[in-house]
Simulated scan of single mutants.
Amino acid sequence: MLKTAAYAAASAQSPLAPHSIERREPGPNEVLIDILYCGVCHSDIHQARDEWGGSIFPMVPGHEIVGRIAQVGAQVGKFQVGDAVGVGCFVDSCRECPQCRDGLQQYCDQGMTGTYNSRERAGGAPTFGGYSTRITVDQDYVLRIPASIPLDRAAPLLCAGITTYSPLKHYGVKAGDRVAVVGLGGLGHMAVKLAAAMGANVTVLSTSESKRDAALALGAQDFAATRDPAVFKTLARSFDFIIDSVSGEHDYNAYLSLLKVDGTMVLLGIPETPAPVAAGLLISKRRRLAGSMIGGIAETQEMLDFCAEHGIASDIELIDIAGINEAYERMIKGDVRYRFVIDIASLERAA
């Protein structure tokens, strides 16, 4: 076993602090990755504070991992030492159910094995994430980072990037489609970039007028501040597709009214309180209300290659690991544009 420096939450009430974990030597089909950067996802906060229930402590969060291969197992053929690679939200799945066979591991019938706050399928040991200096992962759950994407800005693509790319691709968003993005945070800013790169006409819908210039700079063609109720009348039946990236409570029905006939609205956030949906809004225009969760390994690699082709990367604020607790508080306040990324070299210096 390999002693590994990390940052962990000892309990739901504890701030993250230095911790030591053990990583296994890579097996025949595994690679050992020296972690360089790890993105900070809002779900890290939910799980570290046990807001979703069932959290496993001590917990080392982090599922937006980028690094370089340090060691490969004897049967590894996909990667070699020195390759730039990434690990996203999961590190294993059953591999046998229809979804796994179709490359939809995120919807595994037995449940995907999360990169952290989960249990390994063999032995049941808890998984630990990317707020650490290295990780051992089966080669089939590792992504190749294209050379043209800066490694620190690539990290959030492994969650925020694929979470927004997958529904855009699944529902066939194409050039000329009118797409609305609800919310301009870590997810929303990636949705704007990706939809614009697909040739869509993008409008950002936000409660904050102050985000107008940022939305347009990211590639949106238009912006609407939704605190004004007149906006919903002005934009009624305007959009082919809506990506809703907001996790706070809001009125789905107001946004459904903005869809054209056969329009689709996809939910990415999970508000704490279930929201009522008016059947008449769906029935009257054959609208769809759907959900989507990250993406499978093949689709995530496709997304990374698409980003490389179109010069897309996440907009980030690079932080030292010592600033992670402050970063959590700033995220809760929405005070980040648009994703914190931890420089893991700072953890090595602190170890």
Rank of each mutant, 00 (worst) to 15 (best):
L289H: 01
L268F: 08
H310N: 14
L235K: 05
D244A: 15
M112V: 13
S43K: 03
L104M: 13
Y116L: 13
V341N: 02
G183P: 00
L157A: 06
L304R: 00
L187H: 00
D222A: 04
G86E: 00
S247G: 15
A224R: 03
R287N: 03
I162C: 08
V266Q: 04
L143H: 06
A225R: 00
A350K: 03
S208D: 10
A345S: 13
G73H: 07
A230D: 07
A200V: 10
P26Y: 06
N325I: 15
S210L: 13
H250L: 14
P61W: 13
H310C: 09
E329K: 04
V137S: 07
G114E: 09
S118N: 06
L194C: 07
K3C: 07
G114W: 11
I344R: 04
P126D: 00
L256W: 03
F232H: 01
G111D: 00
R287D: 03
V137T: 02
A48F: 09
A12D: 06
I145T: 04
S55I: 14
I35Q: 00
T136W: 11
G280W: 10
P126A: 01
G77N: 03
D140S: 10
G311T: 07
D102L: 15
A147R: 09
D83Y: 04
E329V: 01
P126I: 05
K260I: 14
I332V: 15
I35D: 01
I145D: 03
G219H: 07
Q71I: 08
P150K: 00
G73N: 05
Y131P: 10
A200I: 11
V246L: 09
S206N: 10
N117D: 12
H310Q: 12
L282A: 05
S314F: 14
P18V: 11
V60Y: 07
G199L: 14
D335W: 04
M59Q: 09
Y131E: 02
K285E: 12
K285F: 14
N201Y: 07
H310A: 10
L256T: 01
V81A: 06
V87E: 01
K260G: 08
G77S: 04
A125L: 15
L216V: 10
D335E: 15
A195L: 08
E302L: 13
Y107A: 13
L158G: 09
Y338L: 07
Q221Y: 04
E299S: 05
L2T: 05
